[in-house]
Design a protein around this nucleic acid. Sequence first.
DNA 1: ATATGACCCGAATAGTACTTTTGGTCAAAT
DNA 2: ATTTGACCAAAAGTACTATTCGGGTCATAT
Lengths: 239, 239
Amino acid sequence: MAPAPIEDREVRLLEAAAELFARHGYDKTTIDDVARRAGVSKGSVYLAFEGKQQLFEAMLLTQMRAFSEAWLAAVRAHPRGGTLGAMYQAMLRALDDNPFMSVVFRRDPALLGRYLQQPDNFFRDYAAGQPTRHEVIAMMQEAGAVRRDVDPKVVAHIINMIAYGMVSLDTVVDRAQMPETDAMLEGIATFMDRAFTPEDGGDSEAGKAVIERIFAGGIAAFDGLIDARRARRPMEDER
Amino acid sequence: MAPAPIEDREVRLLEAAAELFARHGYDKTTIDDVARRAGVSKGSVYLAFEGKQQLFEAMLLTQMRAFSEAWLAAVRAHPRGGTLGAMYQAMLRALDDNPFMSVVFRRDPALLGRYLQQPDNFFRDYAAGQPTRHEVIAMMQEAGAVRRDVDPKVVAHIINMIAYGMVSLDTVVDRAQMPETDAMLEGIATFMDRAFTPEDGGDSEAGKAVIERIFAGGIAAFDGLIDARRARRPMEDER
DNA sequence: ATATGACCCGAATAGTACTTTTGGTCAAAT
DNA sequence: ATTTGACCAAAAGTACTATTCGGGTCATAT
């Protein structure tokens, strides 16, 4: 289930990469920085990854997978279970805990730097494989966890706006007049439930099942990508 | 009530400035461009405005005032009157109609350019004079147009997120999978009303009164700023 | 009186030659 | 068999100059 056996060195490189790329951005982080922080030599990096871009993308995938699992765990731990409000409260909490994912979500050019220029960058067509958010909403509707009198596309878009606003707004509004994170997450969840959950509370269990299924799919997709990536790792017997 | 008598030349300059600054941004728009578009010579610009920054700010104030009036008109025209949903549907519609105000709202560095660097730029302390958004929400609560069991700061922040998301999201999501603007605005209004308006529908009339009062204050504030600005216009009899 | 545009000058930009950095390689060391 | 780090070429950065641009002025024209 988990992506595959993985060497210790690789793990350490990925961790070092996550920290440094998140803190200093793609451009300012050098391969040598990452290598040193991981306690290996620069040359070794190229034994594990094809290059800087590939290292970055491997780290990205790892982080996204970890983010998904944190999200799922938060959903499972949430008392109100399978409602949209709970689902997105969990997501926003996971997002708030993971600064790097905020960068990803925002496509922050200051940190992603030249990586975004790269013509074959990950964000270009990542969305393609995944079920779109409004498909998720539609599934939740079918399960009876979301009221049916709303257009799933609209719901999905409003949710996107809120999530995007959440990770971006502190660039415009100063922290001082923002509410406490917890109060805000609670508020968002309450409002979403009022707005999108059926008046009778809906079928929370069915909703939870849908969410579990979607996450299973999403995480499997990540694992697939991670394995595919590993398959074409540099190897001595190549060509 | 309206700001004051105003020369034709000035109006044309402000219009030209609005168009050019919105399209090409602060840095790429030259005084000469504006002058030519307004059909006057460059020198004349300095008979009406102290300089580029002042021209820009005068245009900004004019646009913000116009935006406020468009917003207010949309509120007045809205059937559901004084609810938060109607208020923000109206705002978002006005915002969607006015690309320049989107720029302002987003503090778009790409278009505002060097203007944002200026130490005495308008955005620095504009907020100071105005009632903050959560004060507005609190007033709506007192009037009975917004449910009282929610923290106004949280409500204000969620609303901010949505507004910010709306003007920014198209940089991340491609237009194709965004819903129709009208459907989306309608959805947002419905969402807000379900989430924030008292279950019995609340006191819409009182809400409307609050909104009118706030707008009156806001527009008066703009007029004050516009007049103050005009008072220290360059004049030949000056010291 | 009012408006104009040639003109001024500081600042931004483009051009250039040179230095440093850094992604990537590979012969040598372990 | 692994791992390393000196090494290389290319890219990025720097320092400097030349050139253009554009905000702002003002003598002149209307």
